[in-house]
Simulated assay, not measured.
Amino acid sequence: MSFYISLSGLKAAQADLSTIANNVSNVNSTAFKKSNAVFGDIFAAAPMQTTTQVAGQGVRVQGISQQFTQGTIETTDKTLDLAITGEGFFTVKRVGDNQVSFTRNGAFSVDENRNVVDTTGAHLQVIPVNPATGIPTVTVNNSLTSASLVDLQVPTNWPAGGTTNQLTSVGVGQNGMITGVYADGSTVYLGATAIAAFNSQEGLRQGGDAHWTSTSASGTPMFGTGNSGLYGAVRSGALERSNVDITEELVSLISAQRNFQANSKAIEAANTLSTTIVNMRT
């Protein structure tokens, strides 16, 4: 039995090492969220058995939980580099299958069609607004769905399709409102960044590239604008770094390595005892 107990310990230590290694390898990944391995003991006894005389049967991995703590905000010189100081997520839609996902990676740029896209090519979603007043053209409340959102497009000229007034600058407010200033001095409201919040962030499903999708465990996304409630404020010209503390991870790595070695020693000791018993008759 001790072989299997120590074997479960080896598997648990290996899972811990893999989790820590993934954290360390993504220390420079924009908006990466570190993970922790969660363990639980295995115990079983018959209904009439005295539990004080029963040893445990090992350990199991209960899950790998992500830590959605705020990463360090790094200042950049690009207007469309956006960071959220809070618990919200940017909403993006993948081209082709229209899959909606959520990200903290605000490294946005403009493609050849003047659509604002993230590092994976997905289109940034915004709440449609009146170009002259900036007032949303849809009701912004808890019933707002992703179907009401639109792709953010930054026209080179205004009115769109014209050739007279060319774009001179783009601005993003703390509430996520994107504005364009054109050659005649007019300011055009292009849309309000759709920030998504969830009842349970830990229930989100990872998709890689700092993207997540909603599940039944996370609850349906609640859309809103920045700088209000739990959506957080939007900072232009900044990016959120990984929340991995490299010093903490290296200490955890040493601890996981020691756990692996200790379980290996337990298997070695059990093997020595078994060998001694088998060789008693010889």
Rank of each mutant, 00 (worst) to 15 (best):
G185E: 00
S18W: 07
R281W: 02
F108D: 01
T69M: 07
S65N: 13
F90C: 03
S274D: 05
Q49P: 00
S65C: 00
D16Q: 13
K93F: 02
G162H: 00
G185N: 01
P155M: 05
P136Q: 08
T215D: 05
L230Y: 10
G134P: 08
S2T: 13
D97R: 10
W212N: 08
E87L: 11
G180L: 04
F223T: 04
D184F: 10
G226W: 02
T139Q: 14
G224N: 07
T51P: 03
R258G: 02
T119P: 02
F43D: 02
F198Y: 14
Q70V: 08
N141I: 07
A197L: 09
N26Q: 02
E268C: 00
V92W: 01
G203Y: 07
V126K: 06
I246T: 14
N263I: 02
P47C: 00
A122P: 00
G88I: 01
T85D: 08
N23R: 12
F43S: 05
T225R: 11
T168E: 09
N227F: 09
D77H: 12
V59G: 06
T119K: 15
Y4S: 10
V172E: 01
D81M: 00
G171Y: 06
I73T: 14
T282W: 14
T145H: 00
S25M: 08
G203A: 07
A233E: 08
G185K: 01
K34A: 11
N157Y: 15
S255Q: 13
G224R: 07
T79L: 07
P47Q: 01
N36S: 11
F260H: 06
Q14W: 03
I5N: 12
G229V: 07
K78G: 05
A266Y: 05
G56H: 10
S148V: 02
G180S: 10
E249M: 15
F89R: 01
R114M: 09
T220E: 11
Q57D: 05
T179I: 13
L10H: 04
F260G: 03
V154F: 06
D81K: 03
V244K: 09
A194K: 04
F3V: 13
V116R: 10
N115V: 11
A132I: 14
Q62E: 12
S228V: 14
H211L: 15
N98F: 08
R114T: 14
G208H: 13
Q261C: 09
A12M: 01
G88R: 03
F108H: 07
L82D: 07
T75R: 12
A238E: 07
G219M: 03
G173N: 03
S236Y: 00
Q67S: 13
V116L: 08
G88N: 05
T272H: 11
S252A: 14
A83S: 11
A12D: 00
S200W: 05
T79A: 14
A46K: 15
A31K: 02
T139P: 04
V181P: 00
K78L: 10
G63Q: 02
L124D: 01
T272G: 08
I127Q: 04
N227G: 12
N130W: 05
Y182F: 15
T137N: 11
A183V: 10
Q174L: 11
L7Q: 11
Y189Q: 07
G96F: 07
E202M: 13
T276H: 06
R205V: 15
S29A: 13
D111N: 15
G185D: 00
D209C: 10
V138P: 04
D97V: 08
Q257F: 03
F39Q: 04
T168Q: 13
R104V: 05
T120I: 15
P47W: 03
G86R: 08
